[in-house]
Computed example of a mutant assay.
Amino acid sequence: MAMSIYDYSAKTLDGQDVSLADYRGQVLLIVNTASKCGFTPQYEGLEALYKAHKDRGFTVLAFPCNQFGAQEPGNAEEIANFCSLTYDVSFPVMSKIDVNGADAHPLYKFLKKEQKGVLGTEAIKWNFTKFLIGKDGQVVDRFAPTVKPEDLKVAVEALL
């Protein structure tokens, strides 16, 4: 039974396995992303939040997902190019995953169980749902896609 996000691993866009234990002691914002979504401009806010706090132990982890309106159709190279060229993203972007259903990534199964959404539902409703993780690897909060990254500044700083 998993006790924290540190019990999970994920693949980077270039296929490398990364243990989330590598982020032990950091505050994380884990976000399911998409490049063709109305919320896609949030990449800009995520990058600004990351740059403002990365030197204090904060990281954004993006998990591209194509489960909502097929808004992340690209392959790994296309996703990397989009994030780099369009939003100059410097935080880690992981490989594309499912966040809901039978094939949901184990990390997302854990996140959803730890922090339920509106009306107690576990399902991720759309792209850019955000999970705030404390330095101990525990899920502190869950934010809807409509919550802008800049609105998380106080919550992030409180954990740093």
Rank of each mutant, 00 (worst) to 15 (best):
A21C: 03
A21S: 14
D22F: 07
Y23K: 11
Y23G: 12
R24C: 08
G25M: 07
G25S: 06
Q26W: 02
L28S: 07
L29R: 12
L29Q: 07
L29N: 10
I30L: 13
N32R: 02
T33L: 09
T33E: 01
A34L: 00
A34V: 01
S35Y: 02
K36A: 12
C37K: 01
G38C: 09
F39P: 11
T40A: 04
T40K: 11
P41R: 00
Y43G: 05
G45E: 09
L46Q: 09
L46W: 09
A48I: 01
L49S: 07
Y50M: 02
Y50C: 01
K51G: 05
A52P: 09
H53Y: 14
H53E: 12
K54Q: 13
K54F: 06
K54V: 12
D55Y: 04
G57I: 02
G57P: 04
F58G: 05
F58A: 04
F58T: 03
V60D: 08
V60G: 00
V60A: 01
V60R: 10
L61C: 14
L61R: 12
A62N: 02
A62F: 09
C65Q: 05
C65Y: 12
N66K: 01
Q67F: 10
Q67E: 14
F68N: 06
F68S: 10
G69M: 10
A70Y: 14
A70Q: 15
E72P: 12
E72S: 10
E72A: 14
G74K: 05
G74F: 06
N75T: 09
N75W: 08
A76G: 08
E78Y: 03
E78T: 07
I79A: 00
A80Y: 00
A80N: 07
N81C: 04
F82R: 03
F82T: 11
C83A: 02
L85F: 12
Y87S: 11
Y87W: 15
D88P: 00
V89T: 07
V89L: 04
V89M: 02
F91V: 07
V93P: 03
S95I: 00
I97Q: 07
V99Q: 11
V99L: 11
N100S: 13
N100T: 09
G101K: 10
A102M: 10
A102P: 11
A104K: 13
H105R: 07
P106N: 06
L107V: 14
Y108S: 10
K109W: 04
F110E: 13
L111D: 15
L111A: 15
E114R: 07
E114Y: 02
K116H: 11
K116W: 10
K116P: 02
V118I: 12
G120W: 04
G120L: 10
T121R: 14
T121N: 15
E122H: 13
E122Y: 09
I124F: 08
I124Q: 08
I124S: 06
K125E: 06
K125I: 12
K125F: 01
K125C: 04
W126A: 02
W126N: 09
N127T: 03
F128W: 06
K130S: 04
K130G: 03
F131M: 13
F131G: 13
L132F: 04
I133E: 01
G134I: 02
K135P: 00
D136E: 05
G137D: 09
Q138E: 12
Q138Y: 04
V139T: 13
V139N: 08
V140R: 13
V140M: 05
D141A: 15
D141Y: 02
R142C: 07
F143E: 10
A144S: 14
P145I: 15
T146F: 05
T146C: 00
